[in-house]
Design a protein around this nucleic acid. Sequence first.
DNA 1: ATGAAAGCGCTAACAC
DNA 2: GTGTTAGCGCTTTCAT
Lengths: 334, 334
Amino acid sequence: MENISMKDVAQKAKVSTATVSHVINETRYVAEETKKKVYKAMKELDYQPNSVARSLRSRKSNIIGLLVPLVASDTSNFFFMSIANGIEQVLKENGYNLILSNSSEDLSIEQDQIKVFNSQLIDGLIIAPVDSQKHDYKENLRGNYPVVFIDRQPKELTSDTVLIDSGAGTYKAIELLISKGHTKIGFITGPLGITTSDERLQAYKNALKNNNLSYDESLVKIGSATFDKGHSFTKELVEETGATAIFAANNIMTMGAVHYLQEKDIPIPDKVAIIGFDDYDWLRITSPPLSVVKQPSYEMGKKAVELLIKRINGSKDPYDVHRLPSELVVRGSC
Amino acid sequence: MENISMKDVAQKAKVSTATVSHVINETRYVAEETKKKVYKAMKELDYQPNSVARSLRSRKSNIIGLLVPLVASDTSNFFFMSIANGIEQVLKENGYNLILSNSSEDLSIEQDQIKVFNSQLIDGLIIAPVDSQKHDYKENLRGNYPVVFIDRQPKELTSDTVLIDSGAGTYKAIELLISKGHTKIGFITGPLGITTSDERLQAYKNALKNNNLSYDESLVKIGSATFDKGHSFTKELVEETGATAIFAANNIMTMGAVHYLQEKDIPIPDKVAIIGFDDYDWLRITSPPLSVVKQPSYEMGKKAVELLIKRINGSKDPYDVHRLPSELVVRGSC
DNA sequence: ATGAAAGCGCTAACAC
DNA sequence: GTGTTAGCGCTTTCAT
């Protein structure tokens, strides 16, 4: 199929390319008569504007980049995919497109991907950074597009940031367990040093303190965020430490924890109560249905886009950290 | 930040832009000395090639479009997200980027998105079509890029197509249930008329026939693919039709079915056996762990990319339908 | 072994 | 109310 350009349309409609452009973009007055001729020619030629040429000239691509750390494990991806969904929705309403990119939770891959984005390809970037604590993103992210960080707080506030206040939900969860009479509450988490883990552990400590329970280090298990670690930590907590309640600070370890309890036929919540992290449809069909701290992932995506578009449109407001509330969903497991 | 162009690099290195271009793309011989000068200038200026300009000139964007039908419901998305993962991986290995786009399972949204893609933006498209039976995609998809259909077979073979042979897995599942002595096997499916549903129902019928069981229409429940329908169909099958085994032909209805059985405390598999569709990590923590027909979603994504890249590179092979095998994963629910 | 220059398709400043 | 035209940054033909 041949490629129809604006020139062809202009010729057919017997006008200039400027007029065609202005008709398409409604960017200056064009007489009704002329407009009609142009529309007719476009239709007859089946003209498709070339968005690449438009981007080059107008220095605007209407494309937004999204860079998330997906790893092979299904479950963690789900959280980011839900964010992607929120982003995509709002973007579309505003006439933008989305380029999805994956850092695989690997800093050097992430940097490569950022380099791709630094080539005039995108109008803005939303990123869940791999290493928000040690790495400095300023040097990579010096493309001329605005950036919004999500889920993980970079050490310096160089861009808008959207986080989920997962501490609040965790605090409520621990208090609920305490109110049910639990005094030995195990806490399972992935590696510390990333904002999300740190903040959940802190909330755990605070909840204990404010309820006059002492903090017992042996009840806190820290390790890589895997199904197996969730499983083995729970085993240790139940068998060795005598915990009667478990809080798992991320979705994968939650699954491992539940798996252990089911495998050993330990009655939930009668013998051991459990509260997990992140809410999905399928938690309704575990038995008993799992109580969880729910993160508003879709809303986070939405918020990120809103901030980004504001920046693209020139906002010079000081950078800010936005925190979305997490929520405790109580089902049968506690 | 100012924008460094090739011209700036050329000036600094005291060569022509042609030479710079050839150094970058390794597209003709350049003396080592000259190369060094160019690299040095690029580094000093921190030059980032402008990919938009490159696309315009070379008529190649190195971007692939992916158009999938995501709906609000978590669970169905999972399948496509897993495909997206496979696609993304292989694409990256080949130096391509991915534009993710969502048709929301809505034909008119899908057509709008295709129009966006028809503007020189992408080098190829992978699409899970919304309406593969009635709608003719030829008219929309007349951009000058190759297309690969996935998951759903269009009525005419106008492009490469990658499907999952979900009939084979279904057949095996039904035979397994029969071998366990079940004669009243309920079959729950979403709307017919899409290739995936049709083929699963057909496999069900074949399995019955080949095992000398008569086909009983009252055991087959067809309705919209929702959690609630899965729930109510199972109720009907168990309470009214006296089914002792249930096969659910998609993941959402599988969840609804399991939920009903758990709600009523119906022992699985002793009173009612169940086999569902699509495999996820979390099926390990349902009780009992669910047996399912597993679709190789990641592999489908991979295969689709391979076919697409072959076409982009000029392959003129006749179009073909590729079928990936589905697999029966036997756990405790049957 | 390298350079000059045309031109991809569009937008927008300037002209009338 | 519309046309002319420069130029976005790059690739590539033609020339030397």
